[in-house]
Design a protein around this nucleic acid. Structure first.
Length: 295
DNA sequence: ATGTCCCAGTCTCTGGGA
């Protein structure tokens, strides 16, 4: 099973690129962020033609998250199970990120997948930064209240946090900004403490590759990026993970790409893992190739 | 590099967000 996540920076503007990439990579499940669509305006037909059912959550303009799946989706849940709610003018605004479409979950192929788009935070100490931390707190509470670390669970998306200094092109240049602050990293690490594994880092411990590069200043060409898109997986999924890759090709060329690259996770089928030991191999092969009965 | 891209509304340009 192949699960991918991609902040597409407008699903409509990226439709041709998404179609190209889906044919290139053929994921079973694609978690999308920043669709910038309304539920009504989401390009369901185009995705159906590519072979995908689309579960979408968005109010247009900004944000917007979705799950595209080749297998039927069940148990669709949005915004942590709550209706979108904007804080009224003058009201304390820390529920503002919970009034934005940043979370959709569903079960696909026996795996509960969650597409997440964390708030950006803008600048450290701003109300938007406080709201970002509040959103992370809401995510942690949703996990604690409704999910278990021993279920098949994948949280994918744009977390807008670079977990470590190896996840930015220059830690010194990034110091003092958002995405790398101790509070953000602590909020992200809390997901790990609950029982989720950063699948990319677990599989690629020493690799410095990024998932996002600013459009401006030739940052992509200079590889001035950050690893802020992640697939966080529970232990049962981590045990099935065979490869996790960032596809930089999708960040290149024309039509104009998203400023994020997609991240792809390959899972073995559930069950007993392949025994790579040699002891008894001949007997096992013989047992596996024994002629079966039947007509 | 203050370097780009996308969206909505003020609608063939501008301002806001990332």
């Amino acid at each position: 099973m192949r699960i991918a996540t991609w902040n597409v920076n407008s699903l409509k503007a990226r439709l041709e690129k998404v179609a190209w990439w889906v044919e290139r990579t053929n994921p079973d499940v694609l978690l999308l962020q920043e669709t910038k669509c309304t539920d009504e305006g989401a390009p369901r037909d185009a995705l159906e033609k590519l072979g995908y059912e689309l579960a979408h959550h968005g109010s247009g303009g900004r944000n917007g998250v979705a799950i595209a799946s080749r297998t039927p989706l069940a148990e669709i849940e949005t915004n942590f199970g709550e209706p979108l709610r904007k804080s009224a003018p003058g009201e304390a605004g820390d529920d503002e990120p919970l009034g934005e479409a940043r979370m959709i979950a569903a079960v696909a192929g026996g795996v509960r997948v969650v597409s997440l788009y964390a708030p950006n935070g803008r600048t450290v100490g701003s109300p938007f930064y406080t709201a970002k931390l509040a959103w992370y707190d809401r995510l942690a509470r949703w996990l604690a209240a409704t999910r278990r670390p021993d279920e098949a669970l994948v949280l994918g998306g744009d977390f807008n946090v670079a977990p470590g200094d190896a996840d930015v092109w220059d830690a010194r240049a990034c110091h003092g900004g958002t995405h790398v602050s101790p509070e953000e990293r602590s909020a992200f690490a809390r997901l790990g403490a609950w029982g989720l594994v950063d699948a990319y880092r677990a599989r690629n411990p020493d690799v410095r590759r990024y998932t996002w590069w600013d459009y401006r200043a030739g940052n992509f060409q200079k590889n001035m990026g950050m690893r802020i898109d992640h697939l966080l997986v529970s232990a049962p999924i981590a045990g099935r993970a065979v490869a996790v890759e960032i596809d930089r090709e999708a960040r290149k060329g024309r039509p104009i790409p998203s400023d994020h690259a997609p991240l792809t996770l390959d899972l073995d089928a559930p069950g007993k893992p392949f025994d790579a030991g040699w002891a008894g191999a001949e007997e096992r092969i013989a047992a596996r190739t024994k002629p079966r009965g039947g007509p």
